[in-house]
Every structure is written in structure tokens, then in C-alpha cells.
Design a protein around this nucleic acid. Structure first.
Lengths: 172, 172
DNA sequence: TATATTCGTAAGCAATTACTCACTCTTTAG
DNA sequence: CTAAAGAGTGAGTAATTGCTTACGAATATA
């Protein structure tokens, strides 16, 4: 991965996440990255390929987090760790997650490969705990997470994260 | 409001909410509405004006719902009514709300005039109930609502609404 | 050193974009 | 009934879009 490739990815991520994929022309990405527009297509084939590369990064990061969580033996603690994912995101990774969340609302780019592995861990953990309807319960938890993640990502540091986290812990 | 104006608004809403504002050309809207492209600009001035008209509809609908809820005297019941808004949406209004939710993620079109009045009612009600930190508590409830609304709007009828609603009721 | 491959650019291209304009047809008002 | 205003259209237009291509520079490989 060359320095200019990274620069392109960073600029694209920043622009996509703040304005939306379709609202950002490749010319602007190139300008902000300080490279020629053609280079984008050399490295990423097309605009969609550029988005895919960014999304791929997100998938790898989520996979890594989940890998760690899977290793927790106590299912109760495992569920808690899952639920705390939105709170454990670092500020400099907000743009990536904002982009991923915004893509969910667009038919053509929506992709459940982010939520699927998370739900899987939840369902397994809930089954271990002999929950009656593990699948529905997992959906419920995913709903909470979605709400918290949205709030954190959109309001940034304004929101009272401790309060949210405390409420969440109390309930599980 | 002429018949063709309505047709334009309906087509635009459907397309915007499924593909995203920037991904939909006015030519496609006109085609789907069965009118000439020029008519869009006659009635709505520009593409942004078309979006504004749609968003305005959403604001009026939310204002109406809130007006009704404000009239509930018991603050506890008022809060419950607010929280149940996402569950009371009719299927044929999903596109409108999907669009509004998707716009939240785009810097240029984001607009807190949907959440503000809801939070206002919540804060007032929580204060009536002598909550310690009504503002933070309201944010918490808004987070729940966001999560539920996202789940319902994105998964459609697939999701187990009763389970979600039951969980919500139990907690408040 | 020679050569093949990758990195990078500038210019340009066809298609699409939002929007305008000149015009006709329909509706309304006095 | 007449005239003004609004509804509606089709053919444009300038600008922008994603993307290609021809080429030079750098780098790796032999």
C-alpha cells in the first residue's frame, strides 16, 4: 500500500462519510488527496472499488473485535462486551462508522455483513444462557446498539456516554 | 396541489428513500411520475426544493403526532406515547421516514427539527416526574427510539415488533 | 546495464447532470 | 367573451460526471 493510495483512501473516507458516496466526485477526492484523478482508477478500478476498499477495512476491524470477544468464556460477559462496542469506538474511527451506517439506508450499497457476525455471537451466547427466544432477544439487543451507535456517531462527544453505558449495564 | 405535483412528490419520495437524494436524477423522477422534466422545476424551483417539499410533509406529520401527545395529561403515559411512535408508523409511510433517517447522515441536509420537538416533550414530562437529569434521560430514550425506528424501517415487517414493544414497555 | 513492471500524470471523451427557454394548452377572472 | 395567469412540454445547454488512454518517470528484476 503506497503513501498515495493511503492518502486517497483517507480523503475518500472523509468525504464519503460527511457528504455521502454519490455526492462526492472523484475529482474532489483526487484534489483533496493531492494526486491526479487517474490514479484513483489505477489503484481501485472505479469509484465503487474505492468504496469497497474502505468498507473492507471496516469489515476487518469488526472481525478483529469480534474475534477477541469470542474468546471470552462467560456468555454473560460476552454479551456485555458486544453491547459495549459502540462505546469503545475511538473518535478517529467515527468517519468510517458513520459511512457504514449511512450506507445501510441506501438500497444499492446496503450490506448486512457487519451486523451478521455480531448477531451470531449474540444468538450463541443467549442460547448458552438458555434464553427462550434467543433470535428475537438478539434482535432486541441489536436495536439498542444501533440506537446508541447512531447517537454517539452523530452527536460526537456532546452526548453523555457514561449515562448511556450505565443504563445499558443496568439492564443486562 | 395538482395531480401531477402529487405524482412528482410520490415518485421522488420513493426514489430518494430507496437510492438516496444524490443518486437520483431529476430525469428519472419525471419519467416515473409520467411528466416532463421541466415541470419539476416549474413547481419546485430546483431539485433541493423538491426535497424540501417532501421533508416539509414529514415535519407536519411529526408536528401533528406531537400535538396529540402533548394533550395527554399523565406525564408517564405521555412518555410512553412518545416512545411508541416508531411502532405506530404505518407501512405506507416507511419511505418518508426512511428518507428522513438517511438524511441525518448527510452533513448538508441534516436537520434536527424532527428530533427537537420530541425531545422537548420528553424533557418536560421527565421534569414533571422530578427526574434528576431529565435532559440526559431524554437523550437515552431518544437513543432507544432511534434504534427501534431504524430496525423497523430497515427490516420492515420481518422484525418482531411485539417483542420490541414489550421490552420497551417493561422498562418504562 | 538492460528491460520489464509498476506508479503517476495530463488531456480528453462520451454520457449524464441540473436546469432554462420558447412555446402551447388549459384554467381562471372580470 | 376575452385576456391574463398558470400548467405543461420538448428541445436544448453549459457544466460536471466517471473513466480511458497515451505517455513519461520511477522502480524492480535479470
Amino acid at each position: 500500500m503506497t503513501e498515495k493510495q493511503i492518502s486517497i483512501l483517507e480523503s475518500a473516507l472523509e468525504l464519503f462519510s460527511s457528504k455521502g458516496f454519490d455526492a462526492v466526485p472523484t475529482s474532489l477526492i483526487a484534489k483533496q488527496a493531492g494526486v491526479s484523478e487517474g490514479l484513483i482508477f489505477r489503484h481501485f478500478k472505479n469509484k465503487q472499488g474505492l468504496l469497497n476498499a474502505i468498507v473492507q477495512m471496516g469489515k476487518e476491524k469488526i472481525a478483529f473485535k469480534i474475534q477477541l470477544i469470542t474468546e471470552i468464556v462467560d456468555p454473560q460477559k460476552r454479551i456485555q462486551a458486544i453491547m459495549e462496542i459502540p462505546f469503545s469506538l475511538e473518535t478517529d474511527q467515527y468517519p468510517l462508522w458513520r459511512l457504514i451506517y449511512s450506507l445501510k439506508w441506501q438500497q444499492e450499497y446496503s450490506d448486512d455483513e457487519f451486523s451478521r457476525p455480531i448477531k451470531e455471537v449474540l444468538v450463541n451466547s443467549l442460547n448458552e444462557l438458555k434464553y427462550f427466544d434467543a433470535d428475537a432477544e438478539a434482535d432486541l439487543i441489536m436495536s439498542y446498539m444501533d440506537g446508541f451507535a447512531s447517537t454517539i456517531l452523530l452527536k460526537g462527544e456532546v452526548v453523555n456516554k457514561d449515562k448511556l453505558l450505565h443504563a445499558l449495564r443496568k439492564k443486562y
